[in-house]
Deep mutational scan, measured.
Amino acid sequence: MDVFMKGLSKAKEGVVAAAEKTKQGVAEAAGKTKEGVLYVGSKTKEGVVHGVATVAEKTKEQVTNVGGAVVTGVTAVAQKTVEGAGSIAAATGFVKKDQLGKNEEGAPQEGILEDMPVDPDNEAYEMPSEEGYQDYEPEA
């Protein structure tokens, strides 16, 4: 019985440690998101679009440190934060509304985080759909 109880105690310690790591990862992701939003706020009209992409990228980098179902929630929060940063930029006159959601080359930025393969159960990952990809044929 002692062996059984000791095993359960060790398992509990492992769960607590994993929860603490997840909590730490979420806190880091939130900190990076805040950094990115402050970065966007300090940019001029020309830099705002690039700044919004930076927020998304920093958040995406930190999301990889967070495991399990938390990833889905962090990704949703990050996307809403990026959308909010863009709205703030438009409201303050840093950028025109028609410039939001495009990178410096004018290509749409939507789907940055949505296409990231995420499995809350950590069982399997699927690649994003290939609808947006084109076949590449090298020139002879």
Results as ranks from 00 to 15, higher is better:
Lys10Gln: 05
Val49Lys: 09
Ala124Val: 11
Met127Ser: 08
Lys32Gln: 08
Ala91Val: 05
Val95Cys: 10
Val26Cys: 03
Ser129Leu: 15
Asp119Pro: 11
Ala29Cys: 12
Val118Asn: 06
Pro117Thr: 10
Ala30Asn: 00
Asp98Cys: 13
Asn65Glu: 07
Ala78Trp: 06
Ala18Arg: 00
Lys10Thr: 11
Gly51Glu: 01
Val63Gln: 01
Val63Lys: 00
Ala78Tyr: 10
Ala29Asp: 01
Pro117Leu: 05
Val37Phe: 08
Ala56His: 07
Thr64Phe: 03
Glu13Cys: 08
Thr81Ala: 15
Thr33Asn: 03
Ala78Met: 12
Gln109Glu: 14
Ala11Trp: 15
Leu38Ile: 06
Gly47Thr: 08
Val3Glu: 01
Gly132Ile: 11
Ala124His: 13
Glu20Pro: 00
Lys60Ala: 10
Lys21Cys: 13
Ala27Asp: 03
Gly51Asn: 12
Val48Thr: 03
Lys96Gln: 12
His50Cys: 07
Thr75Met: 15
Gln134Pro: 11
Thr33Val: 14
Lys34Ile: 06
Glu123Val: 12
Thr64Ser: 08
Ala53Leu: 06
Val40Asn: 02
Glu123Arg: 07
Glu139Phe: 11
Asp115Ala: 09
Tyr136Cys: 09
Glu83Asp: 07
Ala19Gln: 02
Ala140Met: 08
Lys80Val: 03
Gln24Trp: 11
Gly106Ser: 12
Gln79Gly: 06
Ala19Gly: 15
Gln134Asn: 09
Thr75Asp: 04
Thr72Glu: 10
Glu20Ala: 07
Lys32Ile: 09
Glu83Cys: 01
Glu123Ile: 12
Tyr125Ser: 12
Gly7Arg: 04
Gln109Asp: 09
Gly36Ile: 14
Pro117Asn: 08
Asn103Leu: 07
Asn65Gly: 09
Thr54Val: 09
Glu20His: 15
Ala17Asp: 14
Gly7Ile: 05
Val63Asp: 02
Ala89Gln: 03
Gly132Tyr: 14
Glu61Pro: 04
Pro108Gln: 15
Asn65Tyr: 05
Val70Ile: 12
Gly47Arg: 08
Gln62Met: 11
Thr54Asn: 15
Val37Ala: 11
Lys23Ala: 04
Val16Thr: 07
Lys97Pro: 09
Ser129Glu: 10
Val26Ala: 03
Ser42Thr: 07
Asp119Arg: 12
Val55Met: 13
Ala107Gln: 10
Gly68Glu: 04
Ser9Gln: 06
Pro120Lys: 07
Ser9Pro: 00
Phe4Thr: 00
Asp115Pro: 10
Glu114Lys: 07
Ile88Ser: 06
Asn122Cys: 08
Val37Cys: 08
Glu123Trp: 11
Met127Val: 13
Ala91Leu: 09
Tyr133Trp: 12
Met127Ile: 07
Pro138Ala: 08
Asn122Glu: 06
Gly67Cys: 06
Pro108Cys: 11
Val49Gln: 13
Asp121Arg: 08
Pro120Glu: 09
Lys23Arg: 12
Ala19Pro: 00
Lys34Asp: 00
Ala91Cys: 14
Glu61Gly: 02
Gly93Val: 10
Lys10Trp: 05
Glu126Phe: 07
Thr92Asn: 04
Ala11Val: 15
Lys23Val: 08
Val82Thr: 03
Glu123Met: 08
Gly51His: 01
Ala56Glu: 01
Asp121Trp: 04
Ala89Asp: 04
Glu131Trp: 13
Met127Thr: 06
Ala91Glu: 05
Lys45His: 07
Val63Met: 02
Lys45Leu: 13
Gly7Asn: 06
Gly106Pro: 10
Gly47Gln: 00
Gln109Leu: 10
Gly47Met: 11
Lys6Arg: 04
Gly67Ser: 10
Val118Lys: 13
Ser87Cys: 04
Leu113Asn: 08
Gly25Glu: 07
His50Asn: 13
Val70Trp: 04
Ala107Pro: 07
Ser129Pro: 05
Glu13Trp: 01
Ala140Arg: 08
Lys32Glu: 00
Ala69Pro: 04
Lys97Trp: 15
Glu61Val: 09
Gly106Met: 10
Lys102His: 10
Ala124Asp: 03
Glu130Tyr: 10
Glu105Asn: 11
Gln99Leu: 03
Thr33Phe: 03
Ser9Tyr: 05
Ser87Trp: 02
Glu57Tyr: 02
Thr81Asp: 03
Ala27Trp: 11
Asp121Lys: 13
Leu38Pro: 00
Gly84Gln: 15
Glu61Leu: 02
Lys6Leu: 03
Ala85Ser: 05
Thr33Leu: 08
Ala140Phe: 07
Ala18Lys: 03
Phe4Tyr: 11
Gly47His: 15
Tyr125Pro: 12
Lys96Leu: 15
Ala56Cys: 15
Ala107Leu: 13
Ser9Trp: 15
Tyr125Lys: 09
Gly51Asp: 02
Ala29Gln: 03
Glu105Ile: 09
Gln79Leu: 13
Glu126Lys: 08
Lys23Trp: 15
Glu110Arg: 04
Ala29Ser: 03
Gly25Ile: 13
Thr59Asn: 05
Val16Phe: 13
Asp115Lys: 10
Lys102Thr: 13
Lys80Glu: 03
Val70Ser: 01
Tyr125Leu: 07
Lys32Asn: 04
Lys96Glu: 07
Gly36Glu: 07
Ala17Thr: 01
Ala124Lys: 13
Leu38Arg: 12
Lys96Asp: 10
Asp119Ala: 03
Val26Arg: 00
Gly14Ile: 15
Tyr133Val: 11
Ser87Thr: 00
Glu114Arg: 11
Tyr39Thr: 13
Glu46Met: 09
Gly106Thr: 11
Lys43Thr: 10
Val52Arg: 02
Pro120Asn: 04
Val74Ala: 12
Tyr125Arg: 05
Ser129Ala: 09
Val74Cys: 07
Val70Thr: 03
Tyr136His: 07
Val118Glu: 07
Val37Pro: 01
Lys60Tyr: 15
Glu114Trp: 13
Ser42Asn: 08
Lys32Ser: 11
Glu28Arg: 11
Asn65His: 09
Gly84His: 13
Gly41Asn: 01
Val48Gly: 02
Asp119Ser: 02
Thr33Glu: 00
Val82Leu: 13
Ala89Cys: 10
Ser42Gln: 04
Ile112Met: 13
Thr44Lys: 01
Val70Gln: 03
Ser9Thr: 03
Ile88His: 04
Val3Ser: 04
Gly67Gln: 11
Glu28Ser: 06
Glu28Phe: 05
Gly41Met: 08
Gly73Lys: 11
Lys12Leu: 06
Asn103Gln: 09
Ala17Gln: 12
Gly73Val: 13
Val77Gln: 02
Glu110Ser: 02
Val49Cys: 07
Gly93Asn: 08
Leu113Cys: 08
Lys80Trp: 13
Gly67Ala: 10
Lys12Ala: 06
Val37Tyr: 00
Tyr125Met: 02
Glu61Ile: 09
Asp98Gly: 09
Pro128Phe: 09
Gly86Val: 02
Glu20Tyr: 14
Gly67Ile: 12
Gln99Ile: 09
Gly25Tyr: 07
Phe94Leu: 13
Lys58Tyr: 13
Thr59Trp: 15
Val118Leu: 07
Glu131Asp: 07
Pro120Val: 03
Glu13Met: 00
Lys34Ala: 09
Val77Ile: 04
Thr92Tyr: 04
Ile88Val: 06
Glu13His: 10
Lys58Trp: 02
Val40Arg: 02
Glu139Leu: 13
Glu20Gln: 06
Ala76Thr: 13
Asp115His: 05
Glu139Trp: 10
Asp2Cys: 09
Tyr133His: 02
Ile88Gly: 03
Gly31Ile: 09
Val63Leu: 10
Gly132Val: 02
Asp98Gln: 13
Val63Ala: 13
Thr59Val: 07
Tyr136Glu: 11
Met5Ile: 00
Thr64Asp: 04
Ser87Tyr: 13
Asp119Gly: 14
Glu61Asp: 03
Pro138Trp: 12
Val82Asp: 04
His50Leu: 12
Glu104Ser: 04
His50Ala: 03
Ala53His: 00
Gly84Ser: 10
Val77Asp: 02
Lys43Tyr: 14
Ser129Ile: 04
Ala76Asp: 07
Val40Met: 08
Ser129Thr: 07
Ala30Met: 13
Gly25Leu: 14
Ala78Lys: 09
Tyr136Trp: 11
Pro108Asp: 06
Gly36Cys: 02
Glu61Ser: 08
Asn103Met: 11
Ala85Glu: 06
Gly86Ser: 13
Gln79Ser: 09
Ala27Gly: 06
Lys23Phe: 14
Gly51Leu: 10
Lys96Phe: 13
Val26Gln: 00
Val48Leu: 06
Lys34Pro: 00
His50Asp: 03
Ala85Cys: 05
Gln79Ile: 09
Met5Leu: 02
Glu130Gln: 09
Ala124Met: 04
Val74Tyr: 04
Gln99Ala: 11
Glu139Pro: 12
Gly101Lys: 13
Glu105Phe: 09
Lys23Gln: 03
Phe4Asp: 00
Gly41Arg: 12
Ala124Cys: 10
Val40Glu: 00
Glu137Pro: 14
Glu28His: 00
Gly36His: 14
Gly73Trp: 11
